[in-house]
């Protein structure tokens, strides 16, 4: 009886230790991925968004994008004509403004917009956020495959997702695939990443998000990306939003 108790105790300690080691590994890996994704001071570039319906019909939108740190971003649509000039400014603490040229003024966006699809794409505002994953999620290492670490992420705060499963490249630590699960545990979306080195940084040149319920896809392609150009906070103000 004593022996059995001792065995259980040892097993429990080992199990806990294993979990601890896994947790440590998972958070280290995730932090490395965050460093790869969010280490630049700022970024400017052009973005092309291709919406692909399940029938293969395509619709293209283009925008310019500026970003400073992980919480300041200004996106301005340049095409199609019906959306040209529409701009979105994201600031810390979920402060977001939308500028619609037809109204000639900025409008504060309710932060419930974070759960919405962004501009008709398969990305939500939440997906588009560039906050570090370590801050938003609790990681757990699920397995190690030949080329990737597979990590499960559980949201720390309220989210539309119950979990994310992320496949991180073992050599360069950028994400190759992210799977999104709804509250019922069903996989609802997946994002495939293509990374390329631009200067000192790994840059996601294309992200393909697929809505698995509707089989609708969105390809987000980045071009003319420049890092660390010295953007100031002035670039992320209402003055610039309307410019």
């Amino acid at each position: 009886m004593k022996k059995m108790t001792f065995s259980l105790l040892v097993s429990s300690v080992l199990l806990l230790a294993g979990t601890y080691v896994n947790a440590q590994d998972a958070s280290t890996i995730l932090k490395k991925m965050d460093n790869v994704m969010f280490s630049s001071k700022d970024m400017v570039g052009k973005q092309k968004v291709v919406l692909i319906s399940k029938n293969g019909n395509k619709e293209t939108r283009e925008s310019t994008i500026k970003q400073k740190g992980t919480e300041k971003r200004l996106m301005r649509f340049t095409s199609p004509a019906s959306q040209a000039g529409i701009s979105v400014l994201s600031l810390p603490n979920d402060v977001m403004y939308l500028y619609l040229p037809a109204f000639g003024k900025e409008r504060r966006i309710a932060s419930s917009a974070k759960n919405q699809k962004f501009a008709g794409t398969d990305f939500s505002y939440d997906d588009m956020e560039s906050k570090s994953y370590s801050n938003k999620y609790t990681p757990k290492l699920l397995k190690i495959e030949t080329n990737v670490f597979v990590i499960e992420l559980t949201p720390k705060a309220s989210s539309d997702y119950s979990k994310l499963i992320i496949y991180i490249n073992k050599v360069n630590f950028y994400p190759e695939l992210i799977e999104y699960y709804d509250k019922g545990g069903k996989k609802v979306k997946e994002a495939k990443y293509i990374f390329k080195k631009v200067g000192n940084y790994w840059s996601a040149t294309e992200i393909q998000m697929t809505d698995l319920k509707t089989n609708h896809k969105t390809k987000m392609q980045m071009s003319e990306v420049k890092y660390d150009t010295g953007l100031t906070d002035d670039e992320f103000s209402l003055r610039k939003l309307k410019d």
């Binding site: 504060r108 932060s111 419930s112």
Partner: peptide, 9 residues
């Protein structure tokens, strides 16, 4: 004024 509280504008 304008603001957002608990997701509501």
């Amino acid at each position: 004024f304008s603001t957002s509280v608990f997701g509501i504008g």
